[in-house]
Simulated scan of single mutants.
Amino acid sequence: MAEADAWDALPDRAAVLGLDLLGGMSEGEGTLLLFGPDTARFWPILQASREADMPDPVDRWSTRVLTAMARDLGGTALFPFGTPRQPFMTWATGTEACHVSPVGLLVHRSQGLNVSFRGAIRVARRIALPAPGPSPCAGCPAPCTTACPVGALTSDGYDLPTCHTWLDDPRNDCMARGCAVRRACPASPPRPDAQAAHHMAAFHPC
């Protein structure tokens, strides 16, 4: 892309690849762009990709797609996996497009509590960034605070052992459909069950 490229052109370019441009932040004379899965396109695109039947398909796909996009933008791709560890949580709040929800998880206006990152691209030029919007939690009755069936994730904190114990219980539907707290957020668009199950299996291997 040419140096005069505007932010407005980037979301459509990302969506074609199965990504959602979740926010950006200025870094001196450069810009950092954060990308997550596009809710409607990511999973079908991944399932049709050459990485689908490989180990760690999501990370492999993310590496290939974002590295190619970074090359086209004249930038560098950075990932939330591998080494060195990158400060994605700090970057996310730094964009002011992600906010801290009442249960302590990050929340995004278009992805709700399902916000996640497949990578970032750092470019050595300034891109005019749009003004960040307000938190989707503003005015929300916060159903996330009471959605966990066993009270493992509330506004009082996160009880990880209780969460994992519940995920071993055959009565739970979180393993098949995703975390009940994340699903309760009115801003969270639905994910394909197969995608939710994939991520839950990575979090809680059987």
Results as ranks from 00 to 15, higher is better:
H199T: 06
A2Q: 12
F117M: 07
R183W: 07
S26D: 04
P102S: 07
S188M: 05
G119K: 08
P11K: 14
H99I: 04
W91E: 03
C140W: 08
G178L: 01
W61T: 01
A201P: 00
L113V: 09
P55E: 07
A92N: 04
L22Q: 15
R71G: 13
T162K: 15
R126H: 13
C185I: 05
R60Q: 02
D159Q: 14
S26M: 06
P57K: 09
A70Y: 14
A196S: 14
W43H: 10
R13I: 05
L105Q: 03
H204M: 00
D53C: 04
A187N: 11
A196V: 04
T67Y: 06
D56P: 02
V100H: 08
I121E: 01
A15C: 08
A152Y: 12
G119I: 11
A9R: 15
D159M: 07
D169A: 08
R125Q: 03
T39G: 00
P132A: 10
S135N: 00
G36K: 05
P205F: 13
T31N: 10
I45N: 04
R171M: 00
P192K: 05
E3K: 14
V181Y: 04
G94A: 11
F35D: 05
P130S: 05
V16Q: 13
Q195Y: 03
L22R: 13
P57H: 12
F35W: 09
S49Y: 13
P143L: 06
L105S: 03
G36A: 04
P134I: 13
V181R: 03
D5K: 10
A184I: 04
H108A: 07
G94W: 11
T162R: 15
M25K: 15
P37F: 09
P170S: 01
D5N: 06
A147N: 08
P186A: 10
G74V: 03
V115D: 00
P130M: 09
T63S: 12
E51I: 01
M54D: 07
E27W: 11
A201I: 01
P84V: 09
S155A: 15
P189S: 10
N114K: 12
S135C: 02
T31C: 13
P186S: 09
G178T: 06
A70S: 12
R171C: 01
A14P: 07
Q47S: 07
M89N: 15
E3Q: 14
V100W: 08
M1Y: 15
S110F: 13
A48N: 02
V115Y: 06
P44K: 02
P190N: 02
G94R: 12
S49L: 03
D5V: 15
C98Y: 14
A196E: 02
R50E: 06
G30F: 13
A194L: 00
A194V: 03
D56R: 13
A201N: 12
T162S: 08
V65Y: 08
G178N: 01
E51L: 04
F117S: 08
D193I: 01
G133V: 14
D20T: 07
P55F: 11
L73F: 13
D53F: 06
P55Y: 11
G23D: 03
C179Y: 10
W43Q: 05
H164E: 10
G36Q: 05
A128W: 07
T76A: 15
